[in-house]
Amino acid sequence: MKSVLVCDDEPIIRMSLKNKLRELGFDEIRECGDGEQAVETALATMPDIVILDVSMPKKDGITAARDIRRRLKIPIILLTACCDAATVKRAKESGIGGFLAKPFREQDLWPAIELACAHADEVENLKEEVEDLKETLESRKVIEKAKGVLMRNQGLSEPEAFRRMQKLAMDKRKSMRQIAEAILLTES
């Protein structure tokens, strides 16, 4: 099941988008007419994708998109009649996955959705990789410190200290980082 939230203050545009989205296989289509309602609806229903008009009452589409992206890691497409540099810059900083120019052409909707979804997936994968790399780096720092403690306190060479930590990790069924942290705790 694919779900989408369409938010535009013009009912005729919402209707046109809904018809095309049904053709594209979206079976759950929610709609609203202002930015505040878009944020509330998105957070309550967690759609697969959001299409927002830039100019809306109560909260503009870019601000609404930023608020949604803070909580949900879903693709967002902006629908806009003006693609000036300032709007594009704000959209880019808010994590927008694509633009549809008004009046939108139906044949442009599917590629915009596909690209926005691919972009959102890529960004999330990169964020996960960065977090994994940070964790690996932190683990290595802790392991290196613990190795240094073993080398200093027990007169071991670097390979011997590393092997001792490896053996402890296997014997105790713990990670190298857990063993290193325990060594550092006994040191302090």
Rank of each mutant, 00 (worst) to 15 (best):
L100R: 02
G97T: 05
E93S: 13
K147T: 08
L79H: 08
L168H: 04
D84G: 04
V88Y: 06
D108W: 01
R152G: 12
D108R: 03
E129L: 00
D132L: 13
L78Y: 02
K134N: 11
C117K: 04
E160Q: 15
P75D: 02
Q166K: 12
S94G: 08
V149Q: 05
Q154K: 13
R177S: 09
E106L: 10
I68S: 06
E135C: 03
V123Y: 05
V130F: 02
R140D: 14
A85E: 14
T87K: 07
L115C: 07
M170T: 13
T63F: 00
F99K: 02
I62K: 07
P111R: 08
H119M: 11
L168W: 09
G98V: 02
G98P: 04
L168P: 00
P111C: 15
W110G: 06
L150E: 09
P103R: 04
S175Q: 09
K127N: 13
H119D: 10
L79Q: 04
S139D: 15
N125R: 08
D121P: 06
L72T: 09
L100C: 11
T87W: 02
E131M: 01
G95M: 03
E181L: 11
E129D: 05
R177A: 07
L133N: 13
R164Q: 10
R173V: 02
D171R: 08
L109T: 00
E138C: 07
T80G: 07
A112S: 14
A86L: 09
F104P: 03
V149R: 07
L126A: 12
A169H: 01
D132W: 05
E144R: 03
L109I: 12
E144S: 10
E138K: 06
K147I: 07
E135W: 02
E158F: 11
L133A: 12
I96A: 05
K172E: 14
G97E: 04
K127H: 12
M176Y: 11
A182W: 00
I96G: 04
L79R: 00
E158Q: 08
V149S: 09
F162G: 08
S139N: 14
I113G: 00
K89S: 13
L78W: 07
L150F: 09
C83N: 12
